[in-house]
Amino acid sequence: MLAALTGFAQGTFASRVEVAGDQVNVTREIDGGLQTVALKLPAIVTTDLRLNEPRYASLPNIMKAKKKPLDVLTPDALGVSTASTVKILKVEAPAARSAGIKVKSVAELVEKLKNEAKVI
């Protein structure tokens, strides 16, 4: 969405990112495998799980961060509306699955699958 509003290119589900000159090659994880796209910079990249190791904040840095100034911006000051058009009517638990039975042997399992569940 950010990419659309700014008109930048987007690379989602990135598993590999390589910057080359004024463009970036992003390898994306898609349903059937991997797709590589070349994006003009600036571009917006969203990452997938396996892109890299996160850089965790160390304790000394956390302490230092506490001394950094914080700029507080409000939506009003920026002139944007954060009102949502989506309203949550209710939230409910999904139908729970109950534990089934344990079978003793492979033969019994095959028999059950064939005759009781009729899936094979």
């Binding site: 290119a9 987007q10 690379g11 349903d31 495998g33 797709q35 796209v37 003009k40």
Partner: peptide, 20 residues
Amino acid sequence: AGISAFVGEELAKSERPELT
């Protein structure tokens, strides 16, 4: 739009049905 281009893709080839 000229800000992105497709480079290539590697699709896992499989004789088996698609997972989903």
